[in-house]
Amino acid sequence: MSTQTRSPFLDLRALAALAHMRFTTRRRIEGAYSGRHQSRQQGGAGEFVDFREYSGGEDLRRLDWKVFARTGKAFVRLHQDETNLLCTLALDASGSMSFSGSRGESSSKLHYVQYLATALTHIITQAQDQVGVAVLDDGVREFLPPGGTLTHVALLQELIEHLSTRPTTTMAGSLRSLFERSSRRGVLMLMSDFLMDDLEDVFGVLRLFRHRGWEVVVLHTVHPDEERLPDGAAYRFDGMENDGHLSCSPSDIRVAYESRFKSHLAMVRQFALAGGCDYRLVSTAVSYLQTLQGFLVERTG
């Protein structure tokens, strides 16, 4: 495979270990071309699956005449079509994603998501599937619909490379906009920290995706410094989404903070699972390769 991309977030040597792994879906999907994934279409060209009694109005081309001749009963043959995967990576580009704690900018959630998204584009396209990217803030800032060409992938990785954050506190609108712009059913992989004001609306939109037959994968990205406040006598915390600042002693509120953050994690997980989404908590403390490997192993089954 030639390396036509110059994205710094793509480490092909590291991804070589994951080359044999494929991203699979758990549901039937609707693709553009034939591929390895079960299609929602049950056409006649695919693998035979079963017989079903004929009911009036059905396409007579699927009727199994031989069976009809032997038994006098009308049965239709059921075949499972296989198609390719259309995966849209929805990346949260709100201000909170640039949080890097006290470990430097390179450990920010956004940075982590850039590595992860770049690797996914590589892996998905290597499996002859199509992948697209949507950058979300208070609107759909960038959207590249799924594609499978090398040029498309290069564009995607370039888009991911130059990803930046904007202070915003809502994402439901951008998701809805993405929903409206997506014509085919596929897989929506949302990478976000879910630190937003309209959390319920966001999951409301995700339910729309699910309702339309999308498979929605929620990758909840957290930073370890978000899970536990830093040690020290006093901090002035500056909000990253134009939400002001606050001075306090972390030791005074550590327990209450951790309790609230855990509640937030639990709530996001609850919303995701209740909406039929696949939920996965992704900590930036864990290497993105390790996270990706675990994700793919689970998906490969």
């Binding site: 930073h223 006598a233 002035r236 915390f237 500056d238 509120i253 209450a256 903070y257």
Partner: peptide, 23 residues
């Protein structure tokens, strides 16, 4: 002797705010 606060951007300011309000 009130400690000079260390400035730090924080994405979860809302939780800090709620915890501070509670205490």
């Amino acid at each position: 002797t009130k400690p000079r606060p260390v400035r730090m951007p924080l994405s979860t300011l809302r939780f800090v705010l709620e915890a501070v309000r509670q205490h």
